[in-house]
């Protein structure tokens, strides 16, 4: 599969499930003192190396890959107890799949995108709208606003980061404390209640 096709495949088949993956991770990554961003990035890198054309159930494959990443990180950390390892191995992907974790429809995704755009700083928003909604090239955007192309690039990459985090739910967990020990305690408490 060519690079461009594979990127399109990611945009269609992987990215829309990242929010669900993060919610799933959110309940576990902390337990192993891992940064969810790092697990997501490592998962993307591994999926990128795999032959996307052969992957039939991308969402499930993404979850399985993320679980392997977690397992590898835990093994590398060495200090993780055997009990923790057993916990990772037991993570039930199938159960997660059929749970109420719903993926947004394209329409809902678009609404979320539009809402996020309105929250961008004014100049950043203007640059993004010209580029993405008006179909201006980066040069045309720069000319029409009387700014340099490198400034356009800065605004666009800022907008991309903000929108990407909103689309994937990466912004929702911002500022939480991922101290491993505390999360193990929390998780235990939660499972004790359930």
């Amino acid at each position: 599969m060519k690079r461009d096709e594979q990127l399109l495949w990611f945009a269609k088949e992987v990215l829309p499930h990242e929010a669900a993956l993060r919610r799933w991770l959110g309940r576990r990554a902390g337990a192993f003192a891992c940064d969810p961003d790092e697990i997501v990035q490592e998962t993307y890198a591994r999926l990128w190396a795999a032959n996307a054309a052969l992957i039939l159930a991308p969402r499930a494959y993404m979850f399985v890959t993320a679980r392997r990443v977690l397992g590898d990180l835990a093994r590398r950390a060495r200090i993780v107890s055997i009990e923790t390892m057993a916990d990772i191995e037991a993570l039930n992907i199938v159960g997660e799949e059929s749970s109420a974790e719903r993926t947004l429809s394209a329409r809902e995704e678009l609404a979320k995108l539009m809402e996020t755009v309105t929250k961008l700083p004014p100049q950043c928003r203007k640059v993004f709208e010209l580029r993405k909604f008006e179909g201006f090239s980066q040069r045309e955007t720069a000319q029409s606003l009387g700014i340099s192309e490198s400034t356009v690039e800065k605004h666009l990459s800022k907008a991309l980061q903000v929108i990407l985090d909103a689309m994937t739910g990466a912004d929702e967990t911002d500022g939480m404390d991922w101290n491993g020990a505390r999360h193990v305690a929390k998780r235990r408490r939660r499972s004790a209640q359930g």
């Binding site: 945009a11 990215l15 993307y44 689309m167």
Partner: peptide, 25 residues
């Protein structure tokens, strides 16, 4: 670096996803 590669793949697919949502709808 795999972390960077993963972040880049994620960012690029996000950029494409935006195009898709804006036009393919």
């Amino acid at each position: 670096d795999p972390q960077r590669l993963g972040a880049l793949v994620r960012a690029r697919s996000g950029w494409l996803r935006i195009n898709e949502l804006v036009s393919a709808d």
